[in-house]
């Protein structure tokens, strides 16, 4: 793990003449691997952040399996969730290709793939908007605001709290991802990224894939219950 310390020979190490090389590192390789470890630790933090909501899910499903089954089957649209899954998976592959374009230094591809990723993220949010407005319309809302007319067994107001917490927090992450992607697109267009410096692309990519990972689990857990 400590192999990145090159005690000598700095100026000739790859990337050390880059304007983005930071003086407190010895080599660009060290800088890039430090940044990546930092991002992985941040993802660890994200996993445990989401784990609180998944705990809520497990407890609720354990105590009220009937509520969950009924509400999910009748009030969540599998097809909408399925479309969003495909959209998000597609955005993940374009994100990965954008990082690859950074590695090979292809500016045009970076911008194109980032743009497709952003469009996919927006489609995802639009579908979510349709789903949310449907639930607002029906009064299938969390806690005190629940006013759905149907007679759902158990504690439906808590199910919708769970639904909105999980998808809402995920949605906030999607929005944060879009902001980061827009910033990346600006930098890509300026030609900042190349074979020795593409850490921001790579790190945002890791974040974006985590957002995808969360959805990979949310989709069957919320929409495909039997």
């Amino acid at each position: 793990m400590s192999d990145s310390h090159a005690a000598h020979g700095h100026a000739d190490a790859p990337g050390n003449n880059s304007p983005f090389f930071q003086h407190h590192f010895v080599t660009m390789t060290q800088q890039a691997s430090a940044a990546k470890l930092g991002m992985w630790l941040f993802l660890v933090q994200e996993v445990l952040f989401f784990s609180g909501l998944f705990m809520f899910y497990i407890i609720f499903r354990y105590l009220h399996p009937d509520t969950m089954l009924w509400a999910s089957e009748h009030l969540l649209d599998k097809t909408m969730g399925g479309i969003n899954t495909v959209v998000l998976l597609f955005s993940s592959v374009t994100m990965a290709l954008a990082v690859r374009a950074g590695q090979v230094g292809n500016k045009q591809h970076q911008v194109t793939y980032l743009a497709i990723t952003i469009v996919c993220a927006c489609i995802f949010l639009c579908v979510k908007y349709v789903e949310y407005s449907h639930k607002f319309h029906m009064g299938a809302l969390p806690g005190h605001f629940y006013s759905y007319a149907g007679n759902i067994p158990g504690e439906p107001q808590t199910f919708f709290a769970l639904y909105f917490c999980l998808t809402g927090l995920h949605g906030i992450h999607v929005i944060a991802g879009i902001i980061a992607l827009l910033w990346l697109m600006k930098r890509s267009a300026r030609g900042d990224f190349g074979p020795t410096y593409y850490a921001p692309l790579e790190l945002t990519g890791l974040y974006w894939h985590l957002v995808d990972l969360v959805w990979i689990f949310l989709f069957p857990l919320l929409y495909l219950i039997h």
Binding site: G52, L53, P142, G143, F145, Q157, A161, L162, C165
Partner: peptide, 13 residues
């Protein structure tokens, strides 16, 4: 955050 939601929306956790 869940505590804040509980206070604001009464989510029932």
């Amino acid at each position: 955050l869940l505590l804040i939601c509980e206070r604001t929306f009464g989510i029932g956790i």
